[in-house]
Design a protein around this nucleic acid. Structure first.
Lengths: 218, 218
DNA sequence: AAATTTTGTTAGAGTTATCTAACTTTATAT
DNA sequence: ATATAAAGTTAGATAACTCTAACAAAATTT
């Protein structure tokens, strides 16, 4: 049986492979906060599962089976997050740590039931897509709020990064998925944006925030 | 942080201590299906946590802290089982294996929320009491069906053992918690009982079954 | 092109949880 | 009360996962 440890390496590899296609041992090492020799050793295990192709001194390549196996863990993670929010009343900033543990549970029926009870949700509480049972993932296309221009109306459909701190910041400004922003102005100096939405006629969002909000035009 | 492995030793110790007060290394060894030297080594870990008192060649004694720590794991297990049945539509025969994994999750909020959503249940789906947050457990007193006599009317309030096979047997006879039996006759030869309940005017239950049904007079 | 930095590997060791084999202690039976 | 059986311990080994120190290879800089 695959250990949680191995599953976490696979998840990290998948995440980095989505950003860069090729992944270094060093990158994995800092992503997982373990030493490079530890990653080096673990690569052998991943290779034995057929999840990665590796030759000495070359970058890691995730195989199709690796991609699928990782997506299925992600599926468990995101179904759990959605279940915790939708069916158990947790806030979107509380669910990541719990899902980090629940995702390793070996009980397909549990996740199938969550899926069913929520009527097969397509995204998690942060707008990230939930892979299907075959590990296929449909990424809705969206742009960063920062890429839009004055006058545009856009709806928040997902978040780029979902740290607790960022989620709490959004809570404090009453920003949630599906919030519709109208861009009032863009500050040239620091790329901050002034937007209006719902009961907030004028709110300034820093560039850092605008880069993390994924929106689509409405 | 306490590993699941250690938690499983503690659980087993707690279970055996409820049956015998004093527990042998050998008993633990066969309960957990690990070798005696392995148990021997683990006892040192349990001792370091202050969960057990041990001197060479003497039986193990669970401490009060050990009892409490074990009860809190049992609490997580039983809340999970009840949640799976009550809120997720699982059958009582499906939940043990899942709860066996979920009980090791370190997220008090998850279990508090289950508790709250179910309005603080007192028993799990098999009628076993759910320990409170301080590890206190209220054992309802009950007798085995086999200890009752012809003519008595009794209600099923819990099960002694909850193997999947036994639970499936009960399902097949439409027996569930709160089923009220009237004892029609007792067979001297094999101690089987003929009972009537609900839509079953006459059903024969073997002694083995009658010993596993915990009932109270109605 | 050589020097430096970054990246990757090897070697050796520690921890946790497990095993078997061999031995000792305690309990049981004749 | 001695022999046998059961229970417990010690020693030594293994597997998974981690580390640091030292070295080698590859990439980058000057």
């Amino acid at each position: 049986m695959v250990s949680s440890t191995v599953e976490n390496y696979l998840k990290a590899l998948y995440k980095l492979a989505n950003e860069n296609a090729e992944v270094n041992i060093s990158e994995l090492s800092s992503e997982l906060e373990v030493s490079k020799p530890t990653v080096n050793a673990m690569v052998k295990t991943l290779q034995q599962h057929g999840w990665v192709i590796y030759t000495k001194y070359k970058p890691l390549k995730l195989t199709e089976e690796g991609r699928k196996a990782a997506a299925l863990i992600l599926r468990k993670h995101r179904l759990t997050e959605m279940f915790l929010v939708e069916k158990m009343g947790f806030g979107w900033e509380e669910v990541h740590e719990i899902a980090e543990q629940v995702e390793h549970i070996k009980a397909p029926a549990l996740f199938d039931r969550m899926d069913e009870l929520m009527d097969y949700p397509k995204v998690d509480p942060h707008g990230s897509p939930i892979p299907d049972k075959d590990g296929n993932i449909i990424q809705k296309d969206s742009k960063k709020l920062s890429e839009h221009e004055v006058g545009e109306k856009v709806m928040l459909i997902a978040l780029n990064h979902s740290s607790k701190e960022f989620l709490e910041f959004l809570d404090s400004r009453d920003i949630s998925l599906n919030t519709v922003f109208e861009i009032k102005s863009v500050e040239n100096f620091d790329d901050s944006m002034v937007v209006s939405y719902e009961k907030h006629p004028s709110e300034t969002l820093s560039q850092k925030v605008c880069e993390r909000l994924l929106v689509e035009k409405v």
